[in-house]
Computed example of a mutant assay.
Amino acid sequence: MSEPYVGVYAISVAASMVSMEIQNLRVYERRGLVTPDRTPGGTRLYSPDDIEVLTRIRDLLAEGLNLAGIARVLELEDVVQRLRERLGDEEAASA
């Protein structure tokens, strides 16, 4: 079973999976919203985690956010996730 952060999907497959145009995925990479793996030849490979991020981007775009807003939302969601993990670790240690 592969790891959720390991790139396995070519850009055309990833774009199809999230119903986006390939050019959009390239824009999101340039803006730092997603960071696909690269083969030695430079081919982008998207992981299951990348697909989740692209799905979130698609949903936020549908809600009317621009790319700057989406970048901020993704950043804040990451902070919240890390804080939840930290809180869970502290609760487990005190139990």
Results as ranks from 00 to 15, higher is better:
Thr55Gln: 15
Glu63Val: 08
Val80Gly: 13
Ala62Glu: 13
Val80Arg: 12
Val79Asp: 15
Arg31Val: 00
Val6Trp: 14
Arg31Glu: 06
Ala95Val: 03
Tyr5Asn: 03
Val73Ala: 09
Arg31His: 05
Asp49Lys: 08
Pro40Met: 00
Ala62Asp: 11
Ala93Ser: 05
Ala68Ile: 05
Ile11His: 01
Ala15Phe: 03
Gly64Tyr: 01
Val34Met: 00
Tyr46Arg: 05
Val18Cys: 02
Ile57Leu: 11
Arg72Gly: 12
Asp50Gln: 10
Asp59Asn: 14
Arg82Met: 14
Asp78Phe: 14
Gly32Leu: 01
Tyr46Thr: 03
Leu83Phe: 07
Asp89Leu: 10
Val79Arg: 09
Arg86Leu: 15
Pro40Cys: 00
Gly64Val: 07
Thr35Tyr: 07
Ile57Lys: 05
Pro4Ser: 09
Asp49Phe: 08
Pro48Cys: 05
Ile11Met: 01
Pro40Ser: 01
Ser16Gln: 10
Arg38Thr: 09
Ala92Asn: 11
Met20Phe: 00
Asp78Glu: 15
Val27Cys: 01
Ile11Arg: 02
Arg86Trp: 15
Thr39Gln: 06
Glu63Met: 12
Tyr46Cys: 01
Leu61Gln: 14
Tyr28Leu: 00
Thr55Pro: 00
Gln23Gly: 00
Ser16Met: 05
Ala14His: 00
Tyr28Ile: 00
Arg58Ile: 08
Glu77Leu: 13
Asp59Gln: 14
Asp89Ser: 12
Ala10Cys: 03
Val13Lys: 02
Leu54Asp: 11
Glu90Thr: 08
Arg58Met: 14
Arg58Leu: 09
Asp37Ala: 03
Met1Ile: 07
Leu65Gly: 01
Asp78Gln: 12
Ser12Val: 04
Glu75Pro: 03
Val79Met: 14
Thr35Ala: 06
Glu3Thr: 07
Met1Phe: 04
Met1Asp: 00
Arg30Lys: 11
Val13Met: 00
Glu85Leu: 11
Glu91Ala: 06
Tyr5Ala: 08
Gly41Asp: 08
Arg82Phe: 10
Arg84Ala: 05
Met1Arg: 02
Gly41Gln: 05
Pro48Ile: 12
Leu83Tyr: 08
Asp49Pro: 02
Asp49Glu: 13
Ala95Cys: 03
Leu60Gly: 01
Arg31Pro: 02
Met20Lys: 06
Gln23Ile: 04
Ala10Glu: 15
Ala14Cys: 02
Glu91Tyr: 05
Ile22Asp: 01
Ser47Asn: 07
Tyr9Leu: 12
Pro40Asn: 03
Thr35Gln: 04
Arg82Val: 13
Val18Ile: 02
Arg58Tyr: 08
Tyr9Gly: 02
Glu85Trp: 06
Val18Gln: 04
Leu87Glu: 07
Ala93Pro: 00
Ala62Ser: 15
Glu3Ser: 10
Ala95Leu: 06
Glu75Cys: 04
